[in-house]
């Protein structure tokens, strides 16, 4: 199998700890993404560009965000994909 960790196979206990930490962190993140659905999200992008949109979904490896009603400086885009590489941070309220 493909090693997914920096921890060597020899240290099974350490690997288990790492996998446990990974699952706790990932579950919390997925619940957070889930709660963003249909919320107004403000994206901070490179060159101080700030745009707002209604959040739809993220792909599993967090490479793209699907959004609706993206307010750009040149108008509103009904549906859009935002590449996560272009984003520095994003904010929403709960």
């Amino acid at each position: 199998s493909i090693p997914t960790s920096a921890v060597s196979d020899a240290d099974a206990e350490q690997l288990q700890k790492e996998q446990h930490a990974r699952s706790v962190l990932r579950e919390r993140f997925l619940r957070c993404v889930l709660s963003m659905t249909n919320k107004n999200v403000r994206f901070h992008m490179h060159e101080r560009v700030k745009v707002e949109a209604t959040f739809g979904a993220s792909d599993i490896d967090v490479l793209n965000f699907q959004v609706s009603d993206l307010h750009t400086p040149i108008g509103v885009q009904k549906e859009a994909l935002i590449r996560s590489q272009d984003v520095i941070s994003f904010t929403f309220d709960i």
Binding site: V87, F90, T91
Partner: peptide
């Protein structure tokens, strides 16, 4: 309420 900020790992 709360505000949530997600900072992309690459940045």
């Amino acid at each position: 309420g709360a505000s949530v900020q997600v900072v992309m790992g690459h940045a």
